[in-house]
Amino acid sequence: MLRGFEHVGLTVRNIDRSLKFYVDLLGMSLVVRRPGLHGNEIAFVSTGNGMLELVCPATGALLAEDVAEGRAGVRHLTFSFDSVDETYRQLEEAGVEMVEAPRLAYNSDIVHKVAFCRDPDGVLIELTERSRNEPA
């Protein structure tokens, strides 16, 4: 029986920079940071209802690439906030690469408002805000 969503693993180029983004800017909690296998460094960060596993290879990593239209793969990571406008402003002020300003969501039956940015490694991040009468 499925118990829930556990985590997504991400390869990162610089674990300190990624932790600054996910913990300091997005508000996630650092669960653990430790050496991994073969000189890698690993950190788990929690959103409260799921985690990201950040793996920084000792050999380095290339910048992420978007999944091409028609190709299978992860298109973006989505996180929910109380206010997309406020989160977008804070990220923009922190120098984060912003992709799309806050707007009403196309899938309004699920979320109210969305915006997009990129994490330090180029992964597309969707910021969402549920409408006040939407269940969480």
Rank of each mutant, 00 (worst) to 15 (best):
A43M: 04
G50L: 07
N133D: 15
I42E: 13
S83D: 10
D16I: 06
L19I: 02
E134R: 12
L2P: 12
D85E: 13
I110Y: 15
A61L: 01
V45H: 00
G36H: 01
G9A: 13
N49F: 11
Y106T: 15
G9H: 03
G95K: 07
G27R: 05
H7S: 04
G27A: 05
L19T: 00
D82M: 11
I110A: 15
G27P: 06
L2M: 13
P35T: 10
M1H: 11
L19Q: 01
E6P: 00
L37I: 10
R89Y: 09
H38T: 03
G39S: 04
F21R: 05
V111Q: 01
G122W: 02
E65V: 09
E97N: 05
V74G: 08
C117F: 07
R132T: 14
F21G: 04
V12K: 00
E129H: 09
R17A: 14
L52A: 03
V96S: 02
R3H: 14
G39C: 01
M98P: 01
L104V: 09
V12F: 03
E6N: 14
G70D: 04
V12G: 01
D66H: 11
L52R: 04
S83H: 10
G4S: 06
D82R: 12
S29G: 01
L10R: 01
S18W: 00
V55L: 05
A43W: 02
A115M: 06
F81I: 12
T11E: 00
E129P: 02
L37M: 13
L10D: 00
V111E: 01
A68P: 05
I15V: 04
I42K: 05
E100M: 11
F5H: 10
S18P: 07
N40R: 03
D16F: 00
P135Q: 08
N107Q: 13
P135E: 08
V123M: 09
R13C: 04
A136E: 14
I110K: 13
E6H: 08
D24Q: 05
V96F: 09
D121V: 06
G95D: 08
T78L: 15
